[in-house]
Every structure is written in structure tokens, then in C-alpha cells.
Design a protein around this nucleic acid. Structure first.
Lengths: 242, 242
DNA sequence: CGCCTCATTGATAACCTTCAAGACCAGTGG
DNA sequence: CCACTGGTCTTGAAGGTTATCAATGAGGCG
């Protein structure tokens, strides 16, 4: 695990935490929360910084508080595929394993709430609420991973881009279905990160975004912003259940 | 859940079960095993039979005892992607959800050890050993799913076929690494099932298998059998970490 | 035997990658 | 102030890989 040298550790009370209520600690009783509070540590990582390397020891596990971290695998010849985007409240690391299964990289600046793996595991054994919550979260991750398998295995480049925009848009605007108004939000991640996640090249990402722009489905704003005037129309381009 | 009309229910003692020791019940104490024994039911499904439909109620969950079941998603226009192959000992179903997330189909004849979802969940709440085991198994599934994302996102058709053969071969022969001798095993599933899992068409599966055969890396035997003389060579064709 | 499913093979075309060039921007140092 | 550099992004041209369409063969079963 890299030292976040340029970003010193910070202490924030769990009560005031942004993801309290939807992170691993969501169901904790006050006593459990207190225990977590005692062994936790906030740390920040700069955009692009590695948080862990596949196969290396990873003594710290924990929750993403803010920002986006990517999990990715690299083939021997350098081809890379992102297999998960960790967003605020997601739990990073596998209790019971002391080595990272993937490269973990901060895609944006990331604030991370860390626990020493061993201490956390001990707490996990004593707390059914905590382990039940972990199970639920990992089952959700499994569903997301499988949904992404459909995208990677069967969708066209155009549909992949549209799917990503829809996913971000829903997160951003709380835009469940009847999103009639105009949505505008920052993509946050680079074209390369998008390409790695979508299983295409950065050129294809760029071309498809331009194509959607030319067709009036989206507008590209500065500093990686996008504007979607007709969210339902974009969703139709995403090629289904999403 | 479809009625396995043509295959009547069977009772088998957990003690004599093929997957006892690696299924959900692996860590169970005798008392827990007895409880499972009481609420379980063996059922067989014919090859091709649907076990559950995505979005439909799925009142039974349980372990695959024998055979292969596929989890797959279908896009509105009919494109289909298999997102998981459930092999003997794998646990099918998500406790806490009463609807199936995917189409579940018997790819071969399947023997299934079923529990009523509600009864199983009650047991799960009372047994930390059971729930811990479930967590471990689902975390393994998550790793497998992510490994497959790399295949779907980045590997060539040739590498996909080779990867699948390597995966089956390892399962079959317990062929960890130093597999020097000739391996021979049945693929069990149709070309269509392979294609759905690999994110390619059946024609591509067929062509790549023929190509590998022409190059002497594999031999195609009757009734879907394959023979691999140089397993390490095939593994090299699979394009990496596997 | 006819019909069905499953599998193989060929021809053609579409889609996406690869290779290449250039735009834009921020930061740095002369 | 401006040139230079590195990183990010866009766009074009060419080529390769895989999908699509189509025909045929092999095997099982009524």
C-alpha cells in the first residue's frame, strides 16, 4: 500500500462521515461504530496514485469516502481491463486475503477510510451485523460485475459509451427514470480510464463521444463535463436493461 | 422455478454427498448439517431445461451437485451473455432476494440440492459458520467474474477459446501446473453455450477450435471431447494470468 | 426416411483497432 | 512574454478481426 505522503492522515468522526449510512458501517450499533472509529484512519490519494498492486501485500482495507478508485488487471503484454470502479461507500479489500487481487489506482483524488486488515477481521468475526453488511455489499458488487460482463461481451462501442454516461448520470442526478430536465455533470475520469473500463481504445471513446455530440444526444463541456438534455433518449442508445 | 417433472426428487444423505466438504455446508457442525439435511431436497433438471427466469420469483436456492448450470442475461434485442457457469458445489441464488437476477439454465443434466429460500435464510441468520462460508464462496465468484471481464474486454477470440479449454482442463485433471501428460475430457456444453460465455458467435468458436486443431494444439474427439497433449502450450495461447 | 439440432466452413461486410498527425492546455524555464 | 514540453484529447486513413449470411454435413429420433 502506497504511503499517502503528500496527503497527511485526517481524523473525522464517523457521525459526520459522508458515507455513514451506506458504507460497511451502515448497520452498526453505536458500540460497534465506536470500535471502528478507534481503529480507522482517513487517508487521501492523489489522482493517478497507486493504492495497491495486484499480488502485493495490502495490509489496509476500508471504505472509499470520496472520489473514484479503479480495480484493474493487466495481461502480460500490457493490455489492461478495469474490472471495477470503487465509488464513495464501496468497500475495498478482501478480508481473509492479505494480498491484493487487482491493481488499485486512484482515478481521481480519493479519500479513503482505512483499517488494519487484521484488526478489522477480528471485529468482523465478532459482529454479525458487520459481516452481513459486507455480504450484501459484495453481492451487489457481483451483480454490477455481471452487468458489466454483458456490456463487455455483447454491446457495441456506442452502447458502451452510452451505458457509462447513463450509469454516471443516474448516480449523479439521482435520476431514476423520469429525468425530464437537463442533466449536467463532470465525468471526473480520463478517456483512458473510460476506455480501460469499457474494453475499447481511447480513440474509440473519443470518436463515439463526438458522434453522440454531433447527433445532439450530449454536449461536451469543459473540464470533462457532459450535458444530457434527453436522458431517456440516451438510455435507449445504451442497448438495454440498465 | 420449473418443476423437474421428468426427474423426481431424490433423497441423499449429506454424508454421502459428492460436494460435501466444498459446498456451502463445508464448515457446518454436525447439528447444522442435520438441520440442512432436514430442509433440503435433491432435484434433477434435464439439459436445456430452465431452472429460473431473470426477474421471476425463485423460491428455492441451493447447491449444484452435479452438472453445469449457466447464468445469463439477455438484451432486449436478443443478444445473450452468460455471466457465470455454476459447477458442482457452487451455490445458486441470493439470500434476501426472492427474484432471480439472471436466467438460470441447465447446460447439462443437473442435480441440484435445494432449500426453501426462507428456511435457508433463517438458518443463515443463526449460523455464523454458514454465512461466513457463503461470503467466501461469493467472494470467489466475484474474483472469477472479474477474471472473465478481462477475457471479455481484452482477449482475442483465440485466447478466449484457449482460456476456456484451460479452465475446463484444470478443473478436470486437477492439472495445476506441471501437467505433462495428455489430458482428455468432455466439454459437456454446446458450442452455443461456449459462445454465450465467451462473448463471441458460435461460428467463431467453431473456427478457432478448428484452427487450434489444425495447429496440433488440441484434438477434437467425438461427443464433444477434447484432447490436449501439451497443456502448457495451450496455456500460453490463453494470453496470460489465469 | 425426414426432420431436427448441432457443428463446420466459406464469402462478404461491419466494426473497431492501429498508426499517425495535430490541437489544446497547463506548467516550466529562458 | 514566449518557447518548449508532457499530457490529454480529437480526428483521419488503413487494416485486421470478428460478425453476418449462407450452404452443407453429421448425428439422433420419431
Amino acid at each position: 500500500m502506497a504511503d499517502g505522503v503528500q496527503f497527511p492522515a485526517v481524523r473525522v468522526s464517523c457521525q459526520r462521515c459522508d458515507v455513514r449510512g451506506r458504507a460497511i458501517c451502515a448497520d452498526c450499533a453505536p458500540a460497534e461504530l465506536e470500535e471502528l472509529d478507534r481503529i480507522k484512519l482517513y487517508r487521501r490519494f492523489a489522482a493517478g496514485e497507486m493504492i495497491a498492486w495486484a499480488g502485493e501485500r495490502m495490509p489496509m482495507i476500508g471504505s472509499v469516502i470520496e472520489g473514484v478508485a479503479s480495480l484493474s488487471s493487466t495481461l502480460p503484454d500490457g493490455r489492461r481491463q478495469t474490472v471495477g470502479l470503487m465509488l464513495p461507500s464501496d468497500f475495498l479489500g478482501r478480508p481473509g486475503r492479505d494480498r491484493a487481487g487487482y491493481d488499485v489506482q486512484a482515478a481521481t483524488e480519493v479519500t479513503f477510510c482505512m483499517f488494519r486488515a487484521q484488526e478489522f477481521e477480528r471485529l468482523l468475526e465478532r459482529s454479525p451485523r458487520l459481516s452481513h453488511r459486507l455480504l450484501e455489499m459484495k453481492l451487489d458488487e457481483l451483480d454490477v460485475a455481471r452487468e458489466w460482463m454483458v456490456l463487455l461481451g455483447r454491446k457495441t462501442a456506442r452502447e458502451r459509451i452510452a451505458s457509462l454516461l447513463v450509469m454516471f448520470g443516474e448516480r449523479e442526478a439521482g435520476a431514476r427514470d423520469g429525468t425530464s430536465g437537463t442533466i449536467r455533470f463532470p465525468l471526473r475520469i480520463t478517456r483512458e480510464a473510460m476506455a480501460d473500463y469499457l474494453g475499447v481504445t481511447i480513440e474509440t471513446v473519443s470518436r463515439q463521444l463526438s458522434q453522440l455530440r454531433r447527433e445532439g444526444l450530449i454536449r461536451l463541456l469543459e473540464s470533462r463535463g457532459v450535458e444530457i438534455s434527453d436522458f431517456a433518449a440516451l438510455r435507449r442508445e445504451a442497448g438495454g436493461p440498465e
